[in-house]
Design a binder for these strands. Structure first.
Lengths: 254, 254
DNA sequence: CAGTGGTCTAGACCACGGG
DNA sequence: CCGTGGTCTAGACCACTGG
């Protein structure tokens, strides 16, 4: 057992019982406490960051991190605000760009309109408890919500605007989720470093009433901020759900 | 721009055009070539590993890595062999344990039987091109395939056995997918280090004919070996699929 | 300004795997 | 045996944040 591995074990144990946002010992502190050099202390804290237990901010310090569950499932509304709020955290979204442009052909096809149709290209960044956690591009036709720029000044939830103004009830038509190394533009939007692991969630929302596609999104989500869980298929047949049964594999993720 | 960042940029560029499994320059080589110490060279190669572009094996070397797409979708069969083969790679699965035990209550509930019903608890490890990539536990009732231990000696695909012997057509009833830090048992099964990022895929398969649940699995999948993509919902309405459209966000994952 | 994490050097020892 | 990556030390400089 290497020194840093032992330090990781001890610190990971201790961190379980402290609330998110708590300051963690600095590299120098850890080195002193465990009687190791800075390299070993640093390796241990770096490992904790890789395990998404802490965040490290240059010039500030190391802090325990909260990881919010983001459940993607057929029945769940495709709304950042609602999903984060349901997880017990505070969502926030800011508009970085809202341009009226002709829809690219790929997007137009997804939205069921002709290429070149006037559309809104929305770039937004979303936060969890004031920490950047998601960023990406969203597309919709101008015809659906012509007053979108105005509406966004009073209501930051796109889902709420679509419900109130466009009178649609957005639901997931199709979603594709994968983990990637964040490219440069995404890492800039997410406030993380290039190559950091991140989710890419591409999603098409349709109106629950008439099935018409209404919103096409490509969103990057920081994997150290959000634990994305994708549920596929209606699991209405059996008893145990939500929590996995306690038997099969000994250790369960916390 | 730090030295190691520049090295990462150069090497990542070069690695794009070499086939998987190719040997990469050692830490000493990189240090010499770029005129840096071992720490900087090592940091660069470590970053390439974190981005899942290379694998590093102690005592052997650093090699480019192939990452196979594993598509989880409502219409896809829940079979490792078939999914990996479709991706153009070579699957292999070995049985680590096949015990006849009373089904734990949670599993029994998923399989639609009473707790204590005789079941098989199957622990298997799966490979892609002879590299360990998945590991986990699978459960099914003894009644479904009483001769399972025998059958596994001649056919390693559980899906094939279920089709040929039990006369069922397994399909996904429910699947839950998330990324975790591999716990000790999983990392041992996967041949990676504890805390390495890995997928946890919990899945219930049912018979396509009568909808009866047949197989409950909890599988860990190495994220550096497999790019899991979960597709949710029938996306039969529009044109572009498979590849995401080329317009919305500038940089696309390779 | 002091304290934090980010980077780097030079050097050392170790564990591992292949010839 | 040698070369590989894994770990560690001691020390240095830097970039960044906060008071």
């Amino acid at each position: 057992m290497s020194k840093s591995t032992e330090i990781v074990r001890v610190l990971a144990e201790e961190l379980q019982s402290v609330p998110p946002g708590t300051r963690v010992a600095s590299e120098a502190d850890v080195g002193q406490r465990f009687g190791v050099g800075r390299a070993a202390a640093r390796a241990a804290l770096g490992e904790l960051e890789r395990r998404m237990l802490v965040s490290r901010i240059q010039g500030v310090g190391t802090f325990t991190r909260r990881r919010v569950d983001y459940l993607v499932a057929p029945g769940k509304a495709p709304s950042w605000s609602r999903t984060i709020r349901e997880a017990g955290a505070t969502p926030r979204t800011v508009v970085l760009a809202c341009d009226e442009v002709p829809l690219p052909s790929g997007v137009a096809a997804e939205l069921g309109t002709g290429p070149g149709e006037p559309g809104f290209r929305l770039v937004r960044r979303s936060f969890i408890d004031d920490m950047p956690a998601a960023w990406g591009v969203e597309w919709l036709t101008v015809a659906l919500v012509p007053e979108l720029p105005t509406a966004l000044r009073h209501e930051e939830s796109l889902d709420a605007i679509l419900r109130a103004v466009a009178r649609v009830r957005p639901e997931r038509a199709w979603t594709r989720s994968s983990m990637e190394s964040a490219p440069d533009d995404a890492s800039a939007g997410l406030g993380c470093r290039p190559g950091d692991p991140a989710w890419l969630i591409v999603s098409l929302a349709r109106d629950g009433a008439d099935g018409r596609p209404v919103l096409f999104t490509e969103r990057w989500v920081r994997s150290d901020a959000v634990r994305v869980i994708v549920e596929l298929g209606a699991h209405g047949t059996t008893a145990a759900r939500g929590a996995t049964p306690g038997g099969p594999v000994s250790s369960r993720p916390t």
